[in-house]
């Protein structure tokens, strides 16, 4: 199977370790991963901020770049939701693009969907001897309906102590440009999420989206400056990539 990695723009620039982790997990499972360098951004920030015209060329670029692959995987529930849920709407007025989107979208998977549904794997041979709590990010939870797929993957990780996050399904307050345009409300939501995360006693808070994690991690880091030992934010792909040797 030709699996193409859509690393996403945020991961490319700020969180390359997450992309590397996806590659390591898939290669460890015996698959070949390709990284089409023509890829850039899914256009979510543009579209969600009301800049449809600006987003459309990015939709075209995505379709041109990934159309030829059997499966496309991205370590981001939000970007995959953009492709599967919002692309059809954006492309609507252009029948040719809409047809290409309709053809491609079902083959675009968030990492846990690819592993659990397409490849049929829950134990990826990882080890991570730490207490971890999981925050289901909104687009993964409510648009992609990832359900317990990431949790099943994490439960199969050796040594990992998975603890439940109270109020897990509540938004962390990131919301893209919301974090800047409504910074005060965003900060209030973040404070509650960070408190819930800290109360679990976990060493790590994992999620399927690095943009939400940057927000949660930034809040935890700010707390950590006054109270050392606050949990760290980590993409769950990086946990799945960890092995006994590193542990």
């Amino acid at each position: 199977m030709r699996i193409a990695l859509f690393v996403t723009c945020v991961n490319d620039l700020v969180f390359p370790a997450t992309g590397q982790a996806v590659v390591r997990v898939l290669e460890r499972l015996g698959h070949t991963v390709e990284f089409p360098v023509e890829q850039s951004c899914c256009g979510q920030m543009h579209a969600n901020s009301g800049y449809r015209a600006e987003a459309l060329p990015l939709v075209r670029n995505f379709v041109d770049t990934f159309g030829r692959y059997d499966a496309v995987v991205a370590p981001s529930g939000s970007c995959v939701a953009m492709v599967r849920e919002s692309y059809p709407r954006l492309a609507g007025p252009d029948p040719e693009l809409a047809a290409a989107v309709a053809e491609l979208a079902p083959r675009v998977h968030e990492l846990s969907e690819l592993l659990v549904d397409v490849l049929g794997v829950t134990d990826v041979g990882a080890a991570f001897p730490h207490r971890v709590t999981y925050h289901p990010t909104c687009h993964g939870l409510r648009m992609l309906r990832l359900g317990d797929r990431p949790l099943r993957l994490l439960r199969a990780v050796r040594g990992l102590d998975l603890v439940e996050l109270p109020g897990a399904e509540e938004c962390c307050g990131f919301g893209g440009t919301f974090a800047v345009k409504n910074a005060d409300v965003s900060a209030a939501m973040l404070a509650d999420k960070c408190a819930a995360v800290c109360d679990t006693g976990a060493a790590y808070v994992a999620a399927a989206d690095n943009s939400c994690l940057a927000h949660i991690g930034g809040g935890l880091s700010r707390r950590g400056r006054s109270t050392p030992g606050a949990p760290r934010a980590v993409h769950y792909a990086e946990i799945l990539a960890s092995t006994e040797e590193e542990a």
Binding site: D12, P16, L190, G217
Partner: peptide, 14 residues
């Protein structure tokens, strides 16, 4: 104002 910001990594994924 209310959270730290991550920096671009030393090396991009690409």
């Amino acid at each position: 104002a209310s959270r730290d910001a991550p920096l671009p990594a030393g090396r991009t994924f690409r």
